[in-house]
């Protein structure tokens, strides 16, 4: 059974690229373009993994991460945070909030896929 992945990002072009890439790898993919819809999707779609962008309008990736981790029913959910701000503090913050991995934009598609597969096995 194909793993479900939720992509959360507000950059349409990045969403397009990720969606295409992950579908091609055989995952079941859904997209959310802001934090609120991400939480909604997470509850409905029940993904195995969330690719979460940090810089988003309305609700930042950190807040979304925190909310996801607060939901006990999503305990098995893996979270990979994506950010264009490569600062160490943000990486630390993300990991502290319960992210499983942290990937800096721009990323290598190969590495991203490898990281996802690693987390889902």
């Amino acid at each position: 059974m194909a793993h479900r992945i939720l992509i959360v990002d507000d950059e349409p072009n990045i969403v397009i690229s990720l969606e295409y890439l992950l579908k091609k790898e055989g995952f079941e993919v859904k997209v959310a373009t802001d934090g609120d819809s991400a939480l909604l999707q997470a509850a409905e779609f029940r993904p195995d993994l969330v690719l979460l962008d940090v810089m988003m309008p309305k609700k930042s990736g950190f807040e979304v991460c925190e909310s996801l981790r607060a939901d006990a029913s999503l305990a098995d959910l893996k979270i990979i945070m994506l950010t264009a701000k490569g600062r160490d503090t943000e990486i630390t913050k993300g990991l502290a909030l319960g992210a499983n991995a942290y990937i800096t934009k721009p990323f290598s598609t190969k590495d991203l896929v490898a990281q996802i597969k690693l987390l889902l096995t």
Partner: peptide, 18 residues
């Protein structure tokens, strides 16, 4: 600035690699 530069770069790299 880094963020603003990386965002388009991310797209460019992703599509180029694919």
């Amino acid at each position: 600035v880094t963020h603003e530069l990386r965002t388009p770069l991310t797209s460019i790299r992703a599509f180029s690699e694919m």
